[in-house]
Amino acid sequence: MESLIHARGLVKRFEGFTAVDGIDVDVRRGEAFGFLGPNGAGKSSTMRMIGCVSPPTDGVLRILGLDPRRDGPKIRAKLGVCPQLDNLDIELSVRENLTTYARFFGIPRRVARQRADELLEFVQLTERADSKVEPLSGGMKRRLTIARALVNEPEIVLLDEPTTGLDPQARHLVWERLFRLKQQGVTLVLTTHYMDEAEQLCDRLVVMDGGRIVAEGSPRALIEQYSTREVVELRFAAESQEAYAEKLAGLGERLEVLPDRILLYVADGDKAAAEVQRRSLAPASVLVRRSSLEDVFLHLTGRTLVD
């Protein structure tokens, strides 16, 4: 398999602080690859290195077979970037944001105009084409930024937290568009700290924490490897959940005590819940759910992902 992004021992250091601490990554053509991790894990730093706007401090990085240090412009010509914070041009209209950006890639004006119209259609912003950027909602701005990242028909699209801060409806719209891109054969690289997003979009992902990669695989494989099939979430009315932890001993494969609840990792959730009732522990609430990447993360780092 051809590796579009190839990193070995990649390091990024800021004035003595190590943001990315020697990671190995391979992204294959046509797949959707995710970086999953909490705030400060080093996701954006990695994305900026891949985007050739941040020189690596150490290690090997090759993108599309080229070296970012030497061939930055050549690589960037084939990338589409949607940064964590929108940096749209507030002095231009929605359509002009796309047409002027296309010019930075040397795309002829006529083609740029045509492509802008297509992309506006694609992200459902055609009615707002002549509006300024400022009054757009957060979700619209995000969609415009994504459209802008596609203006050069890139081989790889880098999306740094594409849906953070959007309402559920807006998120689903973005996911649906990204899914379509993937179907068209575009390689997607995205970061997120939403589990559902990673599960929805990614074929393969790495879990990052403190600048390192702590696990790698498909969402399903990671769950199978690091968690059980189901989880029982128990809340007790008492001050401390700790006291109940002992009484639950032996119920599941594993047990996590969080400040506000206890997670019980089991193969069969309903059976375990019944057993809790039988021991007459009387939790204030019981929830049986399927394991998610959140649980994988909790297991790997001992911390929750979104605090």
Binding site: G51, G72, P73, K74, V81, N87, D89, E91, R148, N152
Partner: peptide
């Protein structure tokens, strides 16, 4: 403040 150049630098422009 406009962070205009960040956007431009993601393109081949140096």
């Amino acid at each position: 403040f406009m962070r205009l150049y960040e956007g431009i630098l993601a393109t081949p422009v140096r």
